[in-house]
Amino acid sequence: MLEVSGITRLFGGVTALEDVSFTIGQGSITGVIGPNGAGKTTLFNIITGIYGRTSGRVTLEDRDISGLPPERLARLGMVRTFQNIELFGAMSVLENVMVGLHTKGSSGFLACSLKMPWSIAEERRIRETAMKWLEFTGITELADDCAGNLPFGKGRLLEIARALAVEPRIILMDEPAAGLNSKETLGLAHLIGKIRGMGVTVVLVEHDMELVMDVCDRIVVLNLGRKLAEGTPREIQENREVIAAYLGED
């Protein structure tokens, strides 16, 4: 489904990532873990087109997507969430999800400003679909609230709802459990399962080991910009190198 091969990224003279390769299977849940500074978020930013790469290739379903901007990737079925949730704070919760449905509409400046019948119909459709996604993530009752005033946990759910509205085939989540309490994390694990249930491939960067071990099929471990190990949660838990990296031994 998603194949990362030989990704290298230099920042000035510093190597943030070096020759990282792995493959993610259709419909799987993959966790990317590693100590702080391992390059996890950089890797996400490169895959999702936020940063450029120094060398290497990313392919999505056999299509070379390396270097494509995020707005193109959204149309190809890849979407992501952010570590410090990036909501549209001045808009309502419902409107946030409606932005997620941007690619599902086609009315341009002219049709919109003239309120053409088809663009009104399209707008109604978008609104209904957005409500559906709020229901899916269980925040329907917040639809009219201002997104900027949401508590962190709800904001996280909204960000996921908004991402799902793009109808992605693969969703990358950057530390989705960060800042959540244990009850919310449990809900998140359930939600991730539900997302996979729809046939969407999930990749997450996460620090919460319990969550990772619980929900992931496969785990990729990064350390100091390199891939340290890859395998099932059980294999990773028993991998000496991984344990050493986490405990800070050489």
């Binding site: 707005e71 992501r80 808009m91 941007h102 793009v166």
Partner: peptide, 27 residues
């Protein structure tokens, strides 16, 4: 009309967080 439409919404989204808007497929 424009402000309350798909385009107006995308514009406000770009205003609030350009990177998130782009991830949602907004050019």
């Amino acid at each position: 009309n424009l402000a309350g439409s798909r385009i107006g919404r995308a514009l406000r989204a770009v205003h609030d967080s350009e990177v998130a808007a782009r991830v949602m497929g907004v050019n």
